[in-house]
Structures are given as C-alpha cells and as structure tokens.
C-alpha cells in the first residue's frame, strides 16, 4: 500500500480525474475536525473510495503541561466517524506554557522526559482506545540532551507501549544534521513496532543543515534508505508520500508513489529470495 497526503491544493483534481491512484489517503485531524463546506464535501467524496490514515499535529505529547483531554476526545470522535485505519502523531512538542506554536519542537533527550512523554502517550491511547504510531521527527538542534536520540526514542516507545511511524526522510535529515550513520540508527530501532512509513523531500539550507520541508521531490539517497528500511523490516508496511508545499502536477506525485511501490516490492522480493 502506498498512499498520499490529501491536500486542498489538489482536492478538485483528485476528485475529477484518476491521475493519482493511492491505496489510501492521509489527513491531519486538526484541519478537518468539526468543519464543513466545499472542501469537506470533496474530502467526503475521497473517503468513499479510499481508506483513511490520520496524522495529528497538535497532540503535543512532549508538552510539559501534559495533553489536552478535550482535544483528544475530539480526535477520537473524528477517528471513529471516518473509520480511520491508523492514527499517528509526532514525538515532539508544539504547545508549551499553555500556548500552541503550530510546529514540531524537539523534546530534551532526558530520562524524566521519557517518563513524562510515555505517560502522555499512554493517556492518549487509553482515551482513543487504540495505539498511536509515534513519528520520529526531524530536528535541527538537540536541547539539553542527556542521552542519545536513539536511546530516547527506544525508551519512549517501550515505556509508552506505542507503535512507531518511521519517517525515512527524517532519519536521513537527522543523520545528516547530527552526523550519524542512518542505516545503523535504523537497524537499532525496535522495528517490530513500525506500523507505518512516511517518505518526503527536504531542502538543504546550508553546508551542514537540511530542513524537513516536504516541498521537494524525494532524493535518491532517501529512496536508497527506504529500500534498506524495507529489507530490515522484512514485511509489508503502508507507505505515505507527503508533499505539503511546491506541489507538482499529479502525474509527478504518482511517479514518486510508483517508485516507492517498486522499491518496496523489490526489497521484499530480495528478502524472500534470501529466505528460500
């Protein structure tokens, strides 16, 4: 399964033609909860043909003040109403001191933060009555780190007993920005918990920094890392193409989705040959 992040920018074309043929679509609940109108009608039409994956932005599992229970209940209603297949969120904070910032800020890699974030995720999972796939976010600077990123992620995932959303582009971006080996990093994650994969493009802004923009095509090294990921996983996992800015013609998006499907198929085929 290869899906696409559903965007208003191409909602009309998506409804009118068959250029894009994703296996599923993904939206942020914050953009579609408790709304109506023209785009909601197009979205409802898309839901008639495609399973929905939901990828949250504002749960803010890393908020010092904890999660917003009322908001989680609204998300649950949305997941139930739309028969959502998978709900995912970010390992970050976007709210602090009771103020939303609408971006994904890095949580300090500390033991107390592990406990705190895991508690928030468990509480959200209890209310939602489902596991959340937590995404490893790209980050541009560590904040008061007392352990490695890998230790932090593995500890949170284990303690929260949640699933993992593997954004392969984020792993690539982080490995570049913080100078580590992406394959080694991937191989040391608890891959049994991976339920979902994101793929996207990025923008290099300086010699030593990449920003995760979702505004460019996927580059070859990220495709290569995706192939490596599939070989490590040794099983089929839904993959999403994310494109938020600078959106090209739909046939170009479809080409990227085809490439993802081909890499996935070939990687898993290689694996089955090895087993035989």
């Amino acid at each position: 399964m290869v899906g696409i992040g559903y965007r208003k920018d191409f909602a009309e074309d998506f409804a009118d033609n068959n250029v894009l043929t994703p296996s599923f679509i993904e939206v942020a609940p914050e953009n579609w909860m408790n709304v109506g109108g023209y785009y909601k009608k197009l979205f409802d039409k898309a839901l008639e043909k495609h399973p929905l994956f939901v990828h949250g932005l504002s749960l803010s599992v890393g908020s010092p003040e904890g999660i917003d229970i009322n908001f989680v209940k609204q998300v649950k209603q949305f997941l139930d109403d739309t028969n959502t297949v998978e709900y995912s969120e970010h390992l970050s904070f976007s709210k602090c001191d009771n103020a939303h910032l609408f971006d994904l800020l890095p949580i300090p890699f500390t033991q107390d933060a592990v406990k705190h974030v895991a508690k928030n995720i468990r509480l959200a999972q209890d209310i939602l009555e489902r596991k959340i796939a937590i995404e490893i976010v790209s980050y541009y600077s560590p904040i008061a780190a007392e352990m490695t990123e890998l230790e932090f992620i593995n500890n949170v995932i284990k303690e929260a007993d949640c699933n993992l959303l593997l954004d392969v582009n984020n792993i690539y971006v982080n490995s570049f920005n913080h100078q580590y080996n992406a394959q080694e990093f991937l191989a040391n994650l608890d891959l049994d918990r991976v339920k979902y994969i994101h793929m996207a493009g990025h923008t290099q802004v300086s010699e030593d920094l990449i920003i995760d923009t979702h505004g460019e095509n996927i580059i070859d090294p990220v495709y290569d890392l995706f192939g490596f990921t599939m070989q490590q996983l040794k099983r089929d996992v839904p993959v999403l193409l994310e494109r938020d800015f600078n959106i090209p013609e739909l046939d170009i998006l479809q080409c990227e989705m085809n490439q993802l499907q081909n890499i996935k198929t070939n990687s898993l085929k290689k694996h089955s040959h090895v087993i035989r």
Partner: peptide, 17 residues
C-alpha cells in the same frame, strides 16, 4: 514527573520561537 529544569529548557525554546 518532568523535572523543572527540563520544563525550563522547553520553555526557553518556546519563548525564543
């Protein structure tokens, strides 16, 4: 429980943003 110093680091980043 989140330590006050961890909270403070997060608060500093948020305030800067």
């Amino acid at each position: 429980m989140l330590f006050a110093k961890t909270h403070q680091h997060q608060s500093n980043l948020a305030t800067y943003c």
